[in-house]
């Protein structure tokens, strides 16, 4: 079967909305209700965070959600239990985002096999560098038809972007500034960089992440790429939610209506 991420970009090239949420947040068993609501109200892609004790590339909001999820009892094993059977109701592509240590400890092949079994389509592991992936782990990910999605930043050289493009599958995650998640940066400062990415005519679609928080920033990012990823702003929105469906509906309608 064709990977769902590829299916998505085959039919939609503009304004793709990817929303990030930490698994097991705000409550342990909110993972599926959040995913269901995201699909229901118009997210094209769902990125689920696998909580980690030491999330280096994330800012305080996402780290706190990760800490909370761990306190709630979330673990990789628990996440796979929650995801068992989710494909009976959720059609949109699902990506797991997390750090390499828990994956390594779970066993890279066991992890990939489990992802394939439950119906996960792609993985983002910010601290698994390209060279290590290429030398050691690529065959395993490909065996299970899992797309590994790499990040590029404004400081990534053209040669390196091309290399990342050749190794990436699904899409490329363009970090909109050299920053951890949740930092505000002026979108205009980033536009030259987005333009540069566009000019490179990469084989993979590009989604812009980090710093996207509302309709204006989403549209600005979408104008230069295939879409954008929202994380921190969404975590803030659902943190104290008493009605997940309603909160998600309000949040998404504020972005794509």
């Amino acid at each position: 079967m064709q990977n769902r991420i590829d299916q998505l970009f085959a039919k939609k090239q503009h304004g793709v909305l990817n929303i990030y949420c930490t698994a097991g947040f705000p409550q342990l068993n909110d993972t599926l209700p959040v995913m269901t609501a995201l699909q229901q109200h118009g997210a094209d892609l769902i990125e689920l965070g696998m909580p980690f004790s030491d999330p280096l590339a994330d800012g305080p909001v996402i780290q706190d959600s990760s800490t909370k999820a761990l306190q709630n009892g979330m673990s990789l094993q628990k996440l796979f239990e929650q995801l068992a059977g989710f494909r009976s109701s959720i059609r949109v592509p699902v990506i797991l985002m997390g750090y390499f240590n828990p994956v390594l400890t779970y066993g890279v092949e066991a992890f990939c096999a489990k992802c394939a079994e439950v119906g996960v389509d792609g993985i983002i592991v910010p601290d698994l560098p390209m060279a290590e992936y290429e030398n050691e782990y690529r065959p395993v990910f490909e065996k299970y038809n899992l797309h590994l999605i790499f990040l590029v930043t404004p400081e990534t050289s053209e040669a390196r972007i091309r290399k990342i493009d050749s190794l990436s599958k699904g899409f490329i995650y363009a970090v909109s500034s050299s920053s951890t998640t949740g930092k505000d940066k002026d979108m205009k400062d980033q536009q030259a960089y987005f333009e540069r990415l566009k000019q490179l005519q990469l084989k993979n679609p590009v989604l812009i992440g980090f710093g996207i928080k509302d309709k204006a920033t989403f549209e600005a990012a979408s104008a230069h790429a295939n879409g954008a990823i929202i994380g921190t702003a969404f975590i803030k929105a659902i943190e104290h939610s008493t009605n997940i469906d309603e909160t998600v509906k309000t949040f998404i309608s504020g972005i794509i209506q």
Binding site: F52, S53, D54, L56, L70, S75, L76, Q77, Y99, F100, N101, P102, V103, L104, T105, Y106, D127
Partner: peptide, 20 residues
């Protein structure tokens, strides 16, 4: 056990779930 801490693959103290 072997894992990644502060960007290095080395021995570290972690839970069975890979939390440091």
């Amino acid at each position: 056990t072997i894992g990644i801490i502060h960007a290095s693959k080395t021995l570290l103290m972690q839970t069975g779930d890979g939390q440091i």
